[in-house]
Design a binder for these strands. Structure first.
Lengths: 250, 250
DNA sequence: TGTATGCGTTGTGTATACAATAGCGAGGGC
DNA sequence: GCCCTCGCTATTGTATACACAACGCATACA
């Protein structure tokens, strides 16, 4: 094992996990395909033990599925799986928003959320929105959702939301990507931003039910738009991990 | 490795996982305690590789926590963590009930649920309820919740609910155990059964919102009762994995 | 020609050896 | 007397060897 380049800065397990996830998400490994440990060892540069650990973690994350006779395969998702995952995430975020509202949040904690809001407002002011601005939007939106989740101050809930976001199409970025595929994309982003504004307002005024409702509506909007986008498959290459969608009737 | 008794019927990994989970839940390993691989190797009878796999899985399950410098420790939960986990589970089950109601369920699919219902009715008819009957109740209740979850026909949601139930105090049995610690236990079980009846009725009549609401109320009831039970710590030894609760002010 | 059986190959499950790191204790210097 | 540093030990991270099981192919027999 002389010539193998070993990067000691990160653990082999983490390195293998990242490499494999990337391979899955970029479509190098097709859904349903069996993932061979030896092959993974070659492509990741780690040895079998860390590769196996990475495979177990990716299974728990939901990207892989255990094969009864042994080994793992890339999981395949139906369109319904994806919309359910988005709605699921929305429901959890709704609960997070309600917790935040009911338990109370200081002005200081809300500040970064408001900064996000303002930054997004500025981006959305541009008509039409530039590619760079859109990219910034994706980042800011993810940040907003993460901060909102944190506001719940509930480690079990935060953990569960993180898990629900592991599936790329169910992550906040996935929301946006799906919506961006539609012609009326900018209008949709503006409505989403309105939701963001309402949830902050509801939390500030300690209106738990309203905070929860708006987050759920936020997700339902994303589901509706994803359905539309999947009908007329335009620009869907923007949607990460589209490769994971079972080409249903194929 | 001649004298080590090896059971080939189940994998060493699974065996180690079960053994370690039991050790954690029965309190042999205290919350916050570092769990040594070598020690686990001795107590489980498996070797280090399967033990490590089991540790990773238990971490993903939420029973263990990774230590930054390496290794794992038993996770500790606050009272709030526990009530949040129960509410979280109730929210997910509410979503499952709504999915079932909105998507429609055949009479044939509802039948096992109704059988559960009837069996529980019979048990609760006894006043006061016997220990054996209570034990049957726990099983039947768990079955009811599992069947209800299945009705959603949503693999991502089912998966998430299963994960949320991995924490023993957040499982349906945990609900019941917590409630049983109170003097008015039987009355509480009867109210819970009423919830079960309502959710079935709502699903049959395709009333999604009502089905969801009653499951959430079901969980909120459990949370309230858990709080009460923790106040007057009577019979709490019935609550599995109570050992995981951080003895907050200790 | 079709089917069944046996052998070979491939790949996972398990065990263990080796390497590296972190934590702790002891000793010496300031 | 206290603190800093060096080294040892214990424990984890990684690599690899070995064993067993499953799948496929080929061959032989019906």
């Amino acid at each position: 094992m002389a010539e193998r380049e070993v990067d000691r800065s990160v653990s082999q397990t983490v390195k293998a996990q990242l490499a494999l996830r990337e391979q899955i998400l970029d479509g190098s490994l097709r859904p349903g395909e069996r993932i061979s440990e030896l092959q993974a060892v070659e492509t990741t540069g780690a040895s079998r033990t860390p590769v196996r650990m990475a495979l177990v973690r990716l299974e728990e994350e939901g990207l892989l599925e255990a094969i009864p006779s042994g080994g793992f395969m890339v999981k395949a998702f139906s369109e319904r799986d994806i919309s359910d995952s988005i709605e699921l995430r929305g429901t959890l975020e709704g609960l997070a928003a309600r917790f935040a509202a009911e338990r109370g949040v200081s002005a200081r904690e809300l500040e970064p959320l408001k900064e996000c809001l303002a930054a997004i407002d500025e981006l959305l002011g541009q008509v039409p929105i530039s590619i760079e601005a859109f990219s910034s939007y994706v980042t800011l939106n993810a940040r907003f959702h993460a901060l909102l989740t944190e506001l719940s101050r509930s480690p079990p809930l935060i953990r569960q939301i993180d898990r629900a976001s592991a599936l790329p199409f169910a992550s906040p970025s996935g929301f946006v990507m799906a919506q961006s595929a539609l012609p009326e994309a900018q209008q949709i982003l503006i409505i989403g931003q309105e939701h963001h504004r309402v949830v902050i307002d509801a939390i500030e005024n300690r209106e738990g039910a309203r905070a929860e409702a708006v987050m759920r509506e936020h997700a339902r909007l994303a589901v509706r738009n994803l359905r539309l986008a999947l009908r007329n498959r335009t620009h869907l290459d923007l949607l990460p991990a589209l490769a994971l969608i079972k080409t249903a009737t194929d």
